[in-house]
Design a protein around this nucleic acid. Sequence first.
DNA 1: GCCAACGTTGGC
DNA 2: GCCAACGTTGGC
Length: 136
Amino acid sequence: MAKRYWLFKSEPDVFSLEDLRKAKRTAWDGVRNYQARNNLAAMQKGDRVLVYHSVKEQAVVGIAEVVREAYPDPTTGDARWVAVDLAAVKALPRPVPLAEMKADRILRDIPLVRQSRLSVMPLPKAAFDRIVALGT
DNA sequence: GCCAACGTTGGC
DNA sequence: GCCAACGTTGGC
């Protein structure tokens, strides 16, 4: 199956891209939203992921990669929830602010802009590539 | 700090 | 099964 593209949101005070780089890889767990959970479950090893810092920074700051596909979330005994493992790939040379994405013709319809509360979302390849280009 | 959006819960 | 109340998230 073709590689897919995703965007993860995180509050940098809680867990940042820098934390991910230091940790090498991390379990992305604790997701308790069905839509986000369904997205986690659809991820495949090697899928590319953009990391967005919410609240204080409000910018896409880097790229990560799925290194382990969905497995039961270790932070709960509830079988409904899953986690994936991510590894950092690189930081964007230039973070791409939310305001810039809102103003961009290709990006203004992505879930990050449309549905601000969703924490794990799919991105069309064109949107992924556009953000990476803006961040270069 | 405020509040809009939205998901969840619980009474009926 | 509906919907009002409530809690949380995250932009402004």
